[in-house]
């Protein structure tokens, strides 16, 4: 069984191949790792989910891939090859050519993601004209077309609206239109539905799911909602406190979680049908901040199965637990697989 399984795609070089990607920040003389040794692969037209509680380093990973972190003292190591080109250490000038054209990004809060003093159409035109030699008119025609495809009603007039004049859902549609305006091969969506209400959320998810067939784009889908992952993603990456806890094809991972954290996350998904339980089981406690990670497995303090071996450095490595399925947990290696389909209800409470 290969240690780093490539997905069963025909394309031998994947769209994005991330290996041992780490982001750390230097503060007050100590080096603080925000994201450690993350590896994953995104194939053509793949939707890969990156899940984890808030503060687990999802946004940092995405921003670092885009080369958007410029705070002093941040260092990025490892490798991220996009279409064979190394992104880590790529000069800003070249990175800029990729940004917006090859790799586009949409953000969590459409409320604040547009510049308030320009119309939505102006901002989409701007992106198109940054990457392609088009006249203002041509750019606007493309903008209107995109907005229409994203399901924005009356796109010609909406393009002349200011961001604050649109509803949250429309704004997020406009945001996606802007991200897609140069036909990027990879779309990074950082919690694109978190700030929206439920019905709008479903519509936006539909839209994103349709992208691969309509535009041929791959998506790195960041969310903290396991339910959304189940509906949307081909492969899933569970991040806990800056480290990968478990990764695998979504069906396999959902059918048989190998990391207690994944299991706990799955247990907290509200059932889609049937009676909703009065209270959903939640994992007690909060993930540790980068500066107070315990030795060994970072999930240890909240884990129902924690034992002495978990609490020694280095943290448990990723081990294969199935085809394309890995978990950073000692249990499978010790022969104690998690009980299957057993909702792990609040392990600590």
């Amino acid at each position: 069984m290969p240690v780093n399984p490539t997905p069963p795609a025909l394309d031998p070089t994947p769209l994005l191949e991330v290996r041992n990607f780490s982001v750390s920040v230097q503060s007050r003389g100590t080096v603080l790792p925000l994201v450690e040794n993350v590896s994953f692969t995104i194939g053509a037209q793949d939707i890969v989910g990156l899940v984890g509680e808030s503060g687990s380093g999802k946004s940092v990973t995405a921003m670092a891939l885009m080369g958007l972190i410029d705070s002093p003292g941040v260092s990025i190591t490892g490798s991220a090859r996009f279409k064979g080109q190394e992104l880590v250490g790529l000069p800003d000038r070249q990175m800029r050519r990729l940004r917006g054209r090859e790799i586009a990004m949409i953000f969590q809060d459409p409320m604040t993601a547009f510049t308030p003093v320009y119309t939505v159409g102006w901002q989409i035109d701007e992106q198109i004209r940054t990457h392609e030699r088009l006249s203002r008119k041509q750019a606007r025609a493309r903008t209107v077309e995109l907005l229409a495809e994203m399901g924005v009603p009356d796109p010609t007039r909406m393009a002349d609206r200011y961001p604050h004049q649109l509803s949250g859902g429309l704004r997020q549609r406009a945001m996606i239109a802007m991200a897609l305006s140069c036909n990027p091969s990879l779309l990074i969506a950082d919690e694109p539905t978190t700030a929206l209400d439920v019905t709008v959320q479903a519509q936006i998810l539909d839209l994103i799911r349709g992208l691969r067939s309509r535009y041929g784009s791959s998506v790195l889908f960041i969310t903290h909602d396991m339910g959304v992952v189940a509906e949307t993603c081909d492969a899933t990456l569970v991040l806990y406190s800056g480290r990968i806890a478990e990764t695998g094809r979504t069906e396999a991972l959902f059918a048989q979680p190998s990391h207690p954290y994944t299991a706990a996350l799955l247990a907290s998904i509200p059932p889609l049908d049937g009676v909703r339980p009065a209270r959903l089981p939640a994992i007690a406690g909060a993930p540790p901040a980068p500066q107070d990670r315990p030795p060994g497995c970072a999930f240890g303090p909240r884990c129902a199965f924690v034992h002495a071996a978990c609490q020694t450095n280095p943290p448990p490595p990723l081990i294969n637990t199935g085809l394309h399925h890995q978990a950073a947990c000692l249990l499978p290696a010790e022969g104690h697989a998690l009980p299957q389909h057993q909702p792990v209800a609040s392990p600590l409470s």
């Binding site: 921003m63 885009m66 958007l68 800003d92 800029r96 050519r97 990729l98 940004r99 917006g100 054209r101 586009a104 990004m105 953000f107 809060d109 604040t112 993601a113 547009f114 510049t115 308030p116 701007e126 992106q127 940054t130 990457h131 945001m175 802007m178």
Partner: peptide, 14 residues
């Protein structure tokens, strides 16, 4: 601000 981040993510020059 978020919108400055968006502007950079669009590939605009600094």
């Amino acid at each position: 601000e978020d919108f400055m981040r968006t502007a950079r993510a669009k590939g605009l020059s600094p």
